[in-house]
Nucleic acid binder design. Sequence first.
DNA 1: TCAAAAGTGTTATCCTTACACCCATGT
DNA 2: ACATGGGTGTAAGGATAACACTTTTGA
Lengths: 301, 301
Amino acid sequence: MSGARAVGAELIAVLVAVTAGTPRVLTIEDGRALPSGPFALEHRSLQSGLRAWVEEQTHHPLGYVEQLYTFADRDRGGEEERRISVSYLGLTRELPATVEGGEAGWRDWYGRFPWEDHRAGPPPAIPEVIAPALAAWAEAAPDGALRAARRARAAGTFGLDGRPWNEELVLQRYELLYEAGLVPEAGGGVAPGAPMLSDHRRILATAMARLRAKIKYRPVVFELMPPSFTLFQLQRSVEGIAGRPVHKGNFRRLIESQDFVEETGEIAADTGGRPARLVRFRGDVVDERAVAGSKLPLARS
Amino acid sequence: MSGARAVGAELIAVLVAVTAGTPRVLTIEDGRALPSGPFALEHRSLQSGLRAWVEEQTHHPLGYVEQLYTFADRDRGGEEERRISVSYLGLTRELPATVEGGEAGWRDWYGRFPWEDHRAGPPPAIPEVIAPALAAWAEAAPDGALRAARRARAAGTFGLDGRPWNEELVLQRYELLYEAGLVPEAGGGVAPGAPMLSDHRRILATAMARLRAKIKYRPVVFELMPPSFTLFQLQRSVEGIAGRPVHKGNFRRLIESQDFVEETGEIAADTGGRPARLVRFRGDVVDERAVAGSKLPLARS
DNA sequence: TCAAAAGTGTTATCCTTACACCCATGT
DNA sequence: ACATGGGTGTAAGGATAACACTTTTGA
């Protein structure tokens, strides 16, 4: 294997917080980019490098951190030097202060992916805009077999023709729209949703997919909650991340049966209805239960 | 964020094949290391770089490829240059020829992880060697709380004290043994199993865990099978990867109900018992079913 | 009185798991 | 005969999803 080995290493962070049931992502450049920085020699590991850099910038502790994906782009830096980008997902407990010196801010992640929000049923943009555009793309295929394959792929990923909606296929949907030329990043621009620079929207899609998959079998939602909260607030956070409604009764039973929370003894009166008990997360059971996972009961979209 | 950005990039491959129900991994250095190579400028992406390099070396096509983890070690290369290592899991359909010019070969992965093979029940090494050593490590903790935490961690990961065995916790078990100083890589050497250079055994553990998790919800086993096979051979492959027995009747029903295979019309007579129908994998259903996944029915160990 | 959320109870259904049994072949 | 694997039927138990209903507060 030949070729120069000199490459730069870059860390890209998808930092997620949830406020009032809305998942938000830390962005810079007026929402068009994810925060990133070089990986420096003095750090023990990639993960500690990311932690140090994020906490230095946001002055906020970072909860759960998980590596997403590593890729090499030849676009930037010319032919002389390749850049290796390592992307991370980070969950933070509260809404931190804005990054220093910047056009930085926390944005609702559905602003970038409007078709992913099925909390109030399928978004109108899917039947009205996306499905017809994908149908046209399928019909434009050179041969019949490819046409059928494209139709099946569109139907499966977007839940068309009566197929069920699978909220975990965030990345597959974005890549399909990209391939079909329906997002600005790929030249076109039919699909709704604000574009981002370079491949940052793809990285965000990866993070969303990972998080949506993870909340179903690991109690990571609690990393996004304040010290005490009501079960309904917890449900709203889960719904925000999953992008679909959750069955109330079953959700409560499931959470309580797994002993993930304990009552604080206090009552939240400002919930809009009957006052609710406040609970806190029991971090101790997680260590023991590192195995089992949480599970969450969804409802029909 | 300061510091030089000059780093080297390295690709590390965990290539897995299954022969007669035994999972094997391609190693070099007489089994002590995983194959690795530098990432070169001319490659389009990390993944294509890996594919090109592996196929050039082994002269064998690579099936399923998946990125595992990226890390930076400061040990090698001194303080001047850090190396970024990107590890990959690759599945190959048959047993390829040995890597050119070398002490390379395919090794049973249980040679490196004897405690992971529960196909014939829990290995004797767990109650006889590992459990006592972990108990001693727990007792050596400075305070009572830490002692209890260590005991709980050992019991949970290794299925002690009547806890269920979870075959997916390969990495957690290796890291526990490492922390407890029971593997040669960490200085000690009580636990059985051949050590490997650097952190290669940790990378292998990551690959095993990923693959064991994946076969439960994605039809990746078929990537390891020959063009036609019997259902029992398929079951043996799954058992080899999962490291635990599978319920025969339920396994067959599950595979067939998902239409993953179709009959070739031929009969295998050399199976040792009643001749079995040969089947082949239906690659076409996977595209459609990119969503659902496979599921596999385990049996009591 | 109504809206909104807090809670609890119950049922139907499906999936998982296990047990049991017969069939066909080679030694 | 028996060991080995092929192949099918069926029932118990638990998890899941759905529906229905009461309670408590504020506007």
